[in-house]
């Protein structure tokens, strides 16, 4: 560390930084942090999100569930990727979750998929939780659960 760098940092610590805190900062640290990142889809990961993620990570991509998905059979748009892909693909990156909102909210919660899962992923619950999150993350929409059957699932 050079003397110049040291002196500069000391000046920052004693003069500039306290002044900045005093004059330029508005709101709490958390509020400023949220304001900076939530608009970019970087909202905090909650305990509930993480619990859902840990359940969804048990998926081994075997595809058995899709043979029991009534919706995937009915809707070609959803089938292209598979609604079951919801908990594999969509669930990974919350910033891209709003793009999947349509597919996620289409789930009727029939649980036909769940009985077929070798590793016991609670698919309906995962999809429901992601649908609620996608709904909440959409700009301008209310943060409460959507009225679709999937979203009512606990």
């Amino acid at each position: 560390m050079t003397f110049g760098a040291m002196a500069y940092l000391a000046y920052r610590a004693i003069v500039a930084h306290p002044l900045k805190r005093l004059l330029r900062q508005r709101g709490t640290g958390e509020a400023r942090f949220r304001a900076a990142y939530e608009t970019e889809g970087l909202a905090p990961t909650t305990e509930a999100d993480r619990a859902i993620g840990l359940e969804a990570q048990a998926c081994i991509a075997c595809g058995l569930c899709e043979t029991g998905c009534a919706l995937a059979a009915a809707d070609p748009a959803i089938r292209a990727l598979g609604l079951h892909a919801a908990f594999r693909l969509y669930g990974r990156n919350p910033a891209e979750l709003p793009l999947a909102a349509g597919a996620l909210e289409a789930c009727a919660g029939c649980t036909g998929c769940e009985a077929l899962c070798p590793t016991g992923v609670p698919i309906t619950r995962v999809v429901g939780a992601l649908a609620r999150r996608a709904h909440g993350a959409r700009p301008g929409s209310p943060r409460e659960p959507s009225p679709s059957p999937a979203a009512r699932d606990p």
Partner: peptide, 9 residues
């Protein structure tokens, strides 16, 4: 049994 397994795969 719980669910299908390796035989179904």
């Amino acid at each position: 049994s719980r669910a299908p397994g390796a035989t179904a795969l």
